[in-house]
Design a protein around this nucleic acid. Structure first.
Lengths: 136, 136
DNA sequence: TTGCAACTACGATAAAAGTCGTATATATTT
DNA sequence: AAATATATACGACTTTTATCGTAGTTGCAA
């Protein structure tokens, strides 16, 4: 009815995974390959979701090229089709833009100021910074 | 038809602003109050969007409690009803969970490894870390 | 005071994400 | 071979976000 293509014309979007898709990817990035059943068992540890919902999301993800699958007897075995680091990089880049108006440093400031970031995490971050400075 | 209330029962969600809503909030957090017209002028600097679209989003945001408005002659003056730091904190917390499986340190690692993060940003981040270490 | 320009209000539409029921196909067991 | 269990496939439905057209209201200018 009206021009709904503008944003699509302007920005070739990265087709980033959604939150629900990331839950599945995070499971697979730890251990692959897995069946829908195995993924579902992991998912219901943190949220209440039906089996066919998990199945459908994984089918959609396969269609989008986020997952690969091979037939294994009666069921399928799924693996992540995209790399963890690249994916996180894309998501982070967009997140810095939208939530922090492009300022990575203010994001880090928030992160370090957050009481919920554990001391252990803070120490790890410092260690990373130290190592980066060593390599310069 | 079926129980679609589970997630709502389980998790009282923070009703975080969406990407489009954040664009508007980021403008207001720099300068307030502003009219719809003024916001729209800012928005079209980076994306092609109609006036009534901006208006509608801002009306919705007011309904959700994200913005406040007062009548000013013929039009309204809008201000952000939520604090920048708190909002960013909520968004960041959720983002670390979903995109980085809860690991803040691996987020920072990605950030520092990102070639698109400018040297200036990196220096600022180091400075923040240094200051935090001073204060301990 | 009447008309135009500027605003708001409202509703229609669309796309995407998430949800799951039901139907179907395929093994496995008895 | 029939019954049961296990998987997938498919489509219906809901909610949320985003989009904008059109209608109505209001203030100001001529």
């Amino acid at each position: 009815m009206y021009d709904n293509n503008r944003s699509k014309i302007m920005s070739k979007d990265k087709n980033n995974p959604t939150a629900a898709e990331l839950e599945i990817l995070n499971i697979l990035w730890l251990k692959q390959p897995l069946t829908v059943k195995e993924i579902h068992i992991e998912l219901i540890k943190t949220k209440d979701v039906g089996y066919t919902t998990a199945l459908k999301i994984m089918q959609n993800m396969t269609g989008k090229g986020l997952l690969k699958r091979i037939l294994n007897g009666k069921s399928h075995l799924y693996t992540a089709a995209i790399k963890k680091e690249e994916t996180q990089q894309n998501l982070l880049s967009k997140f810095v833009d939208t939530a922090f108006a492009g300022s990575a440093s203010s994001l880090v400031m928030q992160l370090l100021g957050n009481k919920k970031t554990s001391k252990k995490e803070l120490d790890e971050i410092k260690k990373i910074i130290d190592e980066m400075e060593q390599n310069q």
